[in-house]
């Protein structure tokens, strides 16, 4: 047997230097990629704020030319003017967006919570559960326009058409619910954001130690009592996070809405102070679609940049702040979770 220690390393230095060089290069390259990513976020946000803010701060950029009575661009943006394609301004679009997302939240929250409860608390983990889980997972990856297509075919034509036949037969052939509208749009968005709520809620439910449930059951509480008194309150922040994320996502979606009820100009708001308060079958305006419409159709391209940026600023600031709230909630959650030593 030769002596085990008799090797010399002729290439040690060159191999080492090459490795060092590659390491330097890769650190630099990946670091550069990270910096680029961060810079692009900052640049995009800054771009919107600067462009939109500058336009809002401007005096009478558009209205002076047509002799409108708005004192500032902000008012012009809110209430509109003849020079904008959508003569109603952004205010009805804001109302439409808010009503739509709230309605969606009201629909998606119980559904998402119930499915998450089923997946964590009730199911035995057999193949139906697996199937449901896979279904939900895939739901998250389906393009949003497909939801619109489905919403149009199923909600509008199948369900809406049936409702018309049963309850609004006197109006036919003019459809009441058998045409795109607020209710169908919010249902479509609810389906679209369902995975978000389910995943967040499930995460929260799984985080609750089973000792808590067992403790409650040991005191004689039924399963439903345990869920409502112990499990859901403990998981509330997670559920809230899920709903906030769902709202943020829904507020920015435009593509599916184009199929299920958004319009460039709606003569009346879908909400009113008189009964029935909410016109579920009505078409509505939407902030995201407003941006799309301005970009696509409004005349006078130079004036458009400012107003599109201003409308975008409105939309983005709402969505980004919702996301930040969700993020902070999650961080808080993780901290309490670490502290409790589970």
């Amino acid at each position: 047997m030769t002596n085990p220690d008799m090797f010399d390393y002729p290439d040690l230095n060159s191999a080492r230097i090459r490795d060092e060089k590659i390491n330097t290069l890769m650190t630099a390259a990946t670091g550069a990629a990270t910096l680029l990513a961060v810079v692009s976020v900052v640049a995009f946000l800054g771009f919107i704020v600067l462009l939109g803010g500058a336009w809002l701060a401007e005096e009478q950029a558009l209205s002076a030319t047509v002799g409108q009575q708005h004192s500032s661009n902000f008012e012009l943006l809110l209430f509109g003017g003849r020079e904008l394609a959508s003569s109603g301004g952004v205010l009805p679009a804001i109302v439409g967006t808010v009503v739509l997302t709230l309605l969606m939240a009201v629909i998606v929250a119980p559904l998402g919570i119930v499915v998450a409860l089923y997946l964590t608390e009730y199911s035995g983990g057999g193949w139906p559960t697996q199937l449901l889980r896979i279904g939900v997972q895939n739901l998250a990856a389906i393009p949003s326009i497909i939801y619109g297509v489905f919403g149009l075919a199923f909600f509008v034509y199948v369900i809406g058409g049936r409702i018309d036949e049963l309850f609004y037969a006197s109006n036919l052939p003019t459809p009441t619910f058998g045409t795109p509208g607020l209710l169908w749009a919010s249902l479509t968005l609810a389906l679209l954001t369902l995975p978000t709520v389910i995943v967040a809620t499930e995460e929260g439910l799984l985080r609750i130690p089973s000792s808590l449930r067992e403790g409650s059951r040991a005191l004689g509480a039924t399963r439903v009592e345990t869920i409502f008194r112990v499990v859901l309150p403990a998981a509330a922040p997670s559920i809230l996070t899920g709903i906030i994320l769902a709202v943020a996502r829904a507020a920015g979606e435009v593509a599916p809405l184009m199929l299920v009820g958004v319009v460039r100009y709606a003569p009346t708001l879908p909400v009113s102070i008189e009964a029935p308060f909410l016109q579920l079958e009505q078409k509505f305006m939407h902030l995201g679609f407003y941006v799309y419409d301005l970009t696509m159709h409004a005349p006078g391209s130079e004036g458009r940049v400012g107003i599109v940026a201003a409308a975008s600023l409105l939309l983005v600031s709402v969505i980004v702040s919702l996301n930040i709230v969700a993020l902070l909630l999650r961080v808080r959650l993780r901290r309490t979770y670490v502290q409790s030593g589970v």
Partner: peptide, 9 residues
Amino acid sequence: SFPTVVVAG
């Protein structure tokens, strides 16, 4: 989370 309509617009 940025709406793509804003980015594209």
